[in-house]
Each structure stands twice: as C-alpha cells, then as structure tokens.
Amino acid sequence: MARRKKIYEGKAKILYEGPEPGTIVQYFKDDATAFNAEKRDVIEGKGVLNNRLSEFFMTGLGTVGVPTHFLKRLNMREQLVRQVEIIPLEIIVRNLAAGTMAKRLGLEEGEALPRPIVEYCLKDDKLGDPLVSEEHIFAFGWASQQDLDDMVALALRVNDFMSGLMYGVGIKLVDFKIEVGRLWDGDFQRLIVADEISPDSCRLWDIETGQKLDKDVFRRDLGNLADAYTEVARRLGVLPANATPIIKPTLIN
C-alpha cells in the first residue's frame, strides 16, 4: 500500500493528502499540550473522542446553515475535509470571563460578560499566538475588512448554536476558538469554519457544579482528561447514555 503524503503535523492533528483533489485527511492524535506546548502528555483515547465530537459539532453546524470544511468521518481517528486556505487568525468568542482574558482585565473567573466578546490571535506557535487588534489584521494584510466581518458573523453563529446545544445537556459554553478557511471557486471565495471544534478548543463547565469538562482539566491538573471528554460525549449522545468514563471509548456510529 502506498504511503500517504503528510502535509502538516501540529500539536493535536496530522494532515494528509486526501484521496481526491481539494480534500485532506485530518488525523486526530492523543497528544495533549498546554502553555504553548511547555506542558505535554499523551492521553489515550483523546484523539478518538475529539474526532467524533468534532464530527458531531460540524455536522450540526451544517444542518443550521453554517458552512464548514467537514465532509465525513473515515474511521475512529480520521475525517475527510475540504482543503482550504487557512486565514492565520484564531477567532475567540468569550461568554464568561476565564483564562487569559480574566488575568489581563482583572476579572473574576466565571464573571458574566455584558455580551459575547470576540478577540483575535495570530496563529504562530513560536510567538505564543499573540492577541492582535483589527488594526494589526488590516495593516499586515492577514484579512480584509469584509473577511473579518464574515469571520465574526460565522463565529457568532457558531456561538449561538454551541451555547444552545451545550445548555441543553447541562453545560455552559464559557468560550471557544475557531479557525476559518477560504474556499475558492475560480476567482470567487467563501469563508467556512475549518480545523476542529472539540473540548480542546472550548471551555465547558457543568452548569450545576462548575466542574471543568475541557482542556483546563489537563492545564490545571484537575483529573483525567479522557474522563472529562467522555462525559461531554456521553451527555451529547455521542456515547451510549449508560457509558461510564473509559480510557478507550466505544463510540456509536
């Protein structure tokens, strides 16, 4: 069997050349990193869970008219996605104060914000993904005003969908980040949600107890990360309702 061509390897995923032009195979690793990869570990089963959860979220977004790069899940660790030109920005939507925003502004973690706040970070691991302003984005040509307007609109639609979905299973969507890609059709482009949406890229808190069900479990040594992700998958119906946290989850198709 011919060896697949690797296009890119990041902290949590590997991208391979897809079977058809304009497609990519996205492979989810078990690696967990925090603090710009200063802290790292391998969490058995994490990649399987993130693959299935990202499929669930991307499929749901598609049903409400939010365009994404997702095509189909191939197996337990891989999914087929559209090849896009990634805009070098992370779009962050914050509903409650947490993480770096709480530290920067001296806010209490969990404090409600007056409205969802959108922030931008430059995608550059070597620089630690620094926070940037709209002025930086336009001056350095990372995106146009129209691009940014479209990206914010996409991010807020994702926020509406994800907030409602999570609230329905007893989870607060504290914040999340997405990446956006350009999909070209000749000279025409459209912007779509790319990369992944998973507990790796969201802050998720239990509504009743405040228990963290996201990567902060790993960042802050609060327990077993696979257990937390398994609980999110169980509540959403991605795992059977009677499932208990397990290292190697059995996922339903």
Rank of each mutant, 00 (worst) to 15 (best):
R3C: 02
K5Y: 00
E9T: 10
E9W: 12
P19E: 11
E20D: 13
P21T: 06
I24M: 08
V25M: 03
T33V: 04
N36T: 08
E38W: 12
E38R: 15
E38G: 11
R40T: 15
E44M: 05
N51W: 00
N51E: 01
R52W: 08
S54L: 06
E55N: 05
F56R: 15
F56E: 13
M58I: 04
T59G: 01
G60V: 04
L61D: 07
L61H: 10
T63D: 06
V64Q: 08
G65C: 10
V66L: 04
P67N: 09
L71Y: 02
L71K: 12
K72G: 00
R73H: 06
L74H: 09
M76P: 01
Q79S: 03
Q83S: 13
Q83W: 03
I86S: 09
P88T: 04
A98D: 07
G99V: 03
M101G: 06
R104V: 00
R104T: 07
L105Q: 14
G106T: 12
E108N: 12
E108S: 15
E109A: 13
G110T: 10
G110Y: 11
A112R: 14
A112C: 13
P114K: 11
P116V: 15
E119N: 07
Y120V: 05
C121Q: 14
L122I: 11
P130C: 09
L131Y: 10
V132K: 04
E134G: 00
F138A: 02
F138T: 05
A139M: 14
F140Y: 15
G141Q: 14
W142S: 06
Q145S: 12
D147A: 01
D147K: 03
D149I: 08
D150L: 00
M151W: 04
A153I: 02
L156G: 12
L156N: 10
R157C: 00
D160P: 01
F161L: 05
M162T: 03
M162S: 11
S163G: 04
L165V: 01
M166Q: 06
G170Y: 05
I171D: 06
L173P: 08
D175Y: 10
D175E: 09
K177M: 06
E179Y: 07
E179N: 03
V180W: 06
V180P: 07
G181F: 07
R182T: 05
L183I: 03
W184H: 13
D185V: 09
G186C: 04
D187G: 00
Q189M: 04
I192H: 02
D195L: 09
S198K: 12
D200C: 05
D200P: 07
S201E: 05
S201A: 07
I207Y: 04
I207R: 08
K212G: 05
K215T: 10
F218C: 08
R219Y: 02
R220N: 14
N224Y: 00
A226E: 07
D227M: 09
D227A: 11
V232M: 10
V232H: 11
R235D: 01
G237F: 07
G237R: 08
P240G: 11
A241W: 02
N242K: 09
N242T: 11
A243T: 13
T244P: 01
T244N: 10
I246S: 14
I246Q: 15
I247S: 08
L251M: 14
